[in-house]
Design a protein around this nucleic acid. Structure first.
Lengths: 261, 261
DNA sequence: CGCACACTGTGTGCGCCATACACAGACCAT
DNA sequence: ATGGTCTGTGTATGGCGCACACAGTGTGCG
């Protein structure tokens, strides 16, 4: 009853696993060519601008020829992600965990800023492609030297990952707009919110919108400072986890039983 | 240069804003009928099962008749969300902020569990519909009594919001599968990861996968305990924010200058 | 009372999409 | 040299969101 551990074709190719030499014509291009062409389209027109026919046209081939390289559009997405992220940046040595994971988060954010369509890619499966794993590895290494257990490192990484994705999702609309458009959109939202969130039914919202520009900030301020602040809060939470684990300056509340540090 | 503060048609209808009586036949049904029909489809077949024609068929009408009620498919999504979430649950009185926001987060999570397709709905605009605002209001009220500023409450709310969405996104696949399928999928992922993440190139990942079931947990453990743990970490971070604001048992590190407490 | 007209539901049609399938030619192992 | 397999291609199918023109309906106004 062994399971189907064999990788899907895309993953095999992304990992550079190649079968023995075979007869027939050589492929005209490489997976990464397809990925780059698709990314070119997505960067300018959003993920909606990526279709099999458009990508094929971008490469100067017919639609169906793409299916010789990629089994489905989901596979195309996988290739795009792999190409867009590239290899994870090496963490700066000599930093504490907080500096390391902050650097990772900012690199991640920068990738999303450069390729906002990433946030629109429907996520179907957990990451298994090479570059995705390098990013995962890099994030996990940030917690080297902390007393966190393996599981805690995983969930801490996920926390940071989720934070970056989530905040960038909020600013997604802005990323594809000019600063001007984004500003007026934010002001419009603020006005409408002030109109609808009456003080009797929505006191807390009303209190938040009362001071001008406050809800603008809700989206706009995530430009840079807001990002760092929010990330800091998440990391503060992780720090609490760490303090709880390490009996250095604080008595361990409950000794971890089964887990290995 | 006043801007277009007037609401789009869907929002007007969702808020129950109606113009004066008009000639012509009365509409055959209500927006919420459409929403419920669409939700019925999405709950069983995922968001992909929702198309204008399918929804119309579900109601016993033709495709194009839907456009008399809804200007676009995005509008349909808005109606679905509004209907699926319903009004936010009242926070339990007499709890501290932590208990209140935890209750809110769990209610939010439960909504996502019941309607996993929510996570697939492309988010285009910030929330302005009535029920969405009640959820926003409810979350903000959870921070009543804390020394957090209005902006800090907003960003804390977003943090929790993002956390819930993010973690549920990870378990999305599981939500639509049977427990058995999910388990084998998790085991398969674990196996593949162990195969690819070799110790030389991916030491941190390898360390995480070494102990059996650890990466299963990465997804599976979010069933209940993992959710609470992660949420606890996020709230710990917010607690640090609160402590920093309140000079009760801790000297204010840096007096907030411009902001009002 | 009647009538004009806005509104309802409908049918048809367009352009786009992902992708199944059959085919012609190219190329390599044998 | 040749057989088999691979490549790129052309055609076709079923679905999608939505624009538009049309016929009937019932209400507000004269």
């Amino acid at each position: 009853m062994d399971e189907q551990v064999e990788l899907p074709r895309v993953l095999q190719q992304l990992w550079g696993i190649e079968g023995p030499a075979r007869p027939g014509p050589k492929p005209a291009f490489h997976l990464s060519d397809i990925g780059q062409a698709a990314i070119r389209l997505a960067d300018t027109g959003g993920l909606a601008a990526v279709s099999m026919s458009k990508v094929a046209a971008e490469l100067g081939f017919t639609t169906m020829s793409l299916y010789r390289y990629v089994d489905s559009k989901d596979d195309l997405y996988a290739v795009m992600l792999e190409e867009a992220f590239g290899e994870a940046p090496e963490p700066v040595a000599g930093q504490a965990w907080r500096g390391r994971i902050t650097g990772w988060a900012e690199a991640f954010r920068d990738s999303l800023r450069q390729h906002p369509w990433i946030l629109q890619v429907p996520v179907s499966e957990p990451p298994l492609s090479p570059n995705q794993l390098t990013w995962m590895e890099s994030a996990l290494q940030a917690f080297d030297g902390t007393p966190l257990t393996a599981n805690e490192r995983l969930s801490s990484m996920l926390l940071v990952n989720i934070y970056v994705r989530g905040t960038m999702q909020l600013t997604l609309t802005m990323l594809t707009q000019t600063a001007e458009e984004a500003a007026t959109a934010g002001r419009l939202y603020n006005q409408r919110l002030r109109l609808l969130a009456t003080e009797d039914r929505f006191p807390a919202i009303a209190a938040g919108v009362q001071q001008p520009n406050s809800v603008d900030d809700l989206d706009l301020d995530f430009e840079d400072d807001g990002f760092r602040d929010g990330l800091g809060t998440v990391l503060d939470g992780i720090q609490v986890r760490i303090d709880r684990q390490s009996p250095i300056d604080r008595k361990a509340r409950k000794a971890p039983t089964d887990r290995q540090g």
